[in-house]
Computed example of a mutant assay.
Amino acid sequence: MCWVMAWSGLAPRVSGGEEGGKGEPVLLPDVSHLVLSALVSAGAVADDEGVWGWEVSGAGKGVSVQEFTSWVISTVPGLGNCLSRYVQDRFRSSEVDPAKESSVSTGNTTFDTSDAYLLTRGRAWSISLSVRNTLSEKFLSASVIGMDTEDLLYSENVDAGRKWGIGVLTEDGFENKDTFYGSSGFLCATYPIFRMLLPSGKEKNIMYCHLHTQLKTYEATPKPLGLAFGGSIGNERIFIDEDFSKVTVRHHAVDKTYQNGSLIPNQGYLPVAASILDFEVWGLGGQTTKRQQDIFKKREDIFSGQRRKIDLAAFGNWEDSPEKMMMDMVSDPNKARREER
């Protein structure tokens, strides 16, 4: 119901046409991960093996109003604004064209099964309810019309059985460094239950990105190669190896950057290592960020080209250079030479 209210206000702006068109079904996103999150928070479902294969529609579970309110405030605070936002959108719509009657028909509804990405419309909506920054509107729009494929930077998918999903939302790009950096970030569990972990404010180990460069130097204590989020070097909250083949998730006790909470069911205190089956990277900075990135890339290409060029004139006359004399001596050390001064 809350998503339909959000959809009714957003659909006309993203489509530019009539809302609630006749004959066009309202595609309801899959929000089972949100329902499970509320049930787990209230203790109606155990946060362990019981979440796998859970059928929300036939479960017959429920939570009290107090428990549900507590879950909303801690996990998806934006859910409480859906009604007020809907009313505001209705007023704006009537002010633009008072004679036009707009209504939302949900008689022809169906669940959307067309999501082709890990970041489904239902998960995008969940994130939009949890974050309080400029990206909230971006994720809300994605929950209505789906993710824009132009924003997909990288994708890797492998079909498998039981899987759990985690995600990271940062405001900084990947930079090859040997220390943690970043200004702000969020960790989230996306499947089978939803959970958003905000920054704690105690430390700033937002993200870590370190890979080998072409110019290798000696390191007495080599730093880990890969991507990491939270924790510290050697005890990262989330660590992805350089081949993007394995991920290690550690207990929140080792991390002071992000809030407490488990990212996977039955996580426990020991590090959990798993193979990466699906991987997606989305760039949601918009056209302004894209232009800045293109300018930076163009500048780097120019610098790289300049480093590859060798100005022979700067070395003077090769025939008179000491380098040529040494090369000739190495090629034939017994050859008699006369040095002209």
Score class of each variant (00 low, 15 high):
10 L>Q: 10
45 V>G: 01
96 V>D: 11
74 S>I: 02
181 Y>Q: 09
48 D>M: 08
74 S>P: 06
208 Y>R: 06
184 S>T: 12
127 I>H: 02
47 D>H: 04
58 G>E: 04
329 M>Q: 11
237 R>W: 00
222 P>C: 04
195 R>K: 15
309 K>H: 09
142 A>I: 00
9 G>Y: 01
5 M>E: 15
207 M>I: 02
77 P>Y: 08
11 A>T: 07
114 S>W: 15
260 N>Q: 14
123 R>F: 05
135 L>Q: 03
168 V>G: 06
223 K>P: 10
299 R>V: 05
201 G>P: 04
323 E>T: 13
120 T>R: 06
256 K>S: 13
327 M>A: 12
53 G>R: 05
305 G>F: 12
204 K>V: 05
193 I>M: 14
83 L>G: 01
333 P>R: 08
303 F>G: 04
242 E>K: 05
76 V>T: 05
3 W>F: 03
88 Q>I: 09
168 V>M: 14
97 D>S: 15
181 Y>M: 04
30 D>M: 02
134 T>A: 15
328 D>R: 14
43 G>H: 05
188 C>E: 08
248 T>Y: 01
131 V>R: 02
187 L>Y: 08
160 A>E: 14
287 Q>V: 15
146 G>V: 07
20 G>L: 12
154 Y>C: 01
259 Q>P: 09
221 T>K: 14
241 D>R: 07
200 S>F: 04
46 A>K: 13
69 T>K: 09
91 F>C: 06
40 V>K: 02
331 S>I: 06
128 S>T: 02
43 G>W: 04
82 C>E: 15
113 T>N: 12
127 I>Q: 01
199 P>F: 13
72 V>P: 04
285 G>I: 01
104 V>R: 09
309 K>L: 14
282 W>Q: 03
42 A>Y: 02
292 Q>L: 10
88 Q>A: 11
42 A>H: 03
159 D>V: 00
94 S>G: 01
148 D>Q: 04
171 E>L: 12
232 S>V: 12
317 N>R: 09
218 Y>N: 14
90 R>T: 03
236 E>P: 05
270 L>Q: 10
182 G>N: 09
202 K>I: 05
141 S>K: 04
167 G>A: 09
119 L>E: 01
12 P>K: 02
128 S>K: 02
36 L>S: 08
122 G>T: 00
47 D>R: 05
17 G>A: 08
54 W>F: 14
108 N>M: 08
13 R>G: 03
222 P>S: 06
116 A>E: 13
303 F>E: 08
